[in-house]
Design a protein around this nucleic acid. Sequence first.
DNA 1: CACACTGTTCGCTC
DNA 2: CGAGCGAACAGTGT
Length: 260
Amino acid sequence: MPELPEVHGYKIYLDSTSLHKKITAMECRDKRLLKKPLGDFEKALLGESFTETVRIGKYLFLKTTGSKTLLMHFGMTGRPNYYKDREDRPKFGHIVLTFENAFHLAFENKRKFGWWQLVDDIEDYRKQHNLSKDARELSLDEFKESLSTRKTDIKKVILDQSVTAGVGNWMADEILYQAQVHPKQKVERMTETQMDKVYKAMQHVIETAIDCDAHYDDFPKEFLMHFRKEGATCYHTGGEIEKIKVGGRSTYFSPKWQKL
DNA sequence: CACACTGTTCGCTC
DNA sequence: CGAGCGAACAGTGT
């Protein structure tokens, strides 16, 4: 489930494997993953190279030597896979690019919620699609500014990509656990201190997850990820973890630790 | 076999 | 017009 830290890792992976190599072929097994006709992608990519990647939240942009930028979104189950031999094509590698060195880059997407798009200008795209600045680069003031107009549950708001781009379902639960704030806390009734705590927890969770290469087992022992299941034991209170729905999403929290 | 799970998008209401 | 809400989307795992 790629959220900000995983996509950050994908960026590093692509930077070290897929830049500055001419693209010689493109194959797509399922056109539903393409937001434009295949021909448009071929025209934009074949004969060109990737020059640089830019990540905003869970969106990964690959600039090219041509005029277009390739945008990848991994959905819930995607990842890039750079490999050499044709027979090593991953089972769910639905889109595959081939480079001039004969290596391939597969866009793995088991559940097909991921997609590719072609973009002219990254900043224009960001604004048109109401993406905030990347959560990692958001300032406390910008965060509070976004919260000031909202009236719903804090968990829904930090899942909103126009507020904190990159935060997904597990990160939202982790952030609120670290900040000791109930997921159904109404934003309009939050104190300054609570907002500060959520912001700090968000930065802490992001940096920790990136330091661990998004490998959950390596997270500090007080992280919710280690006991994020119904009836598990809260590290701080010894109480039980509860599962509820917030904004249609499964939400895990510790009632004794995160009080309304 | 039914349903849960993921993030984004769409259509609708207020 | 912006916020909020719920359904829809695909397909594997349980």
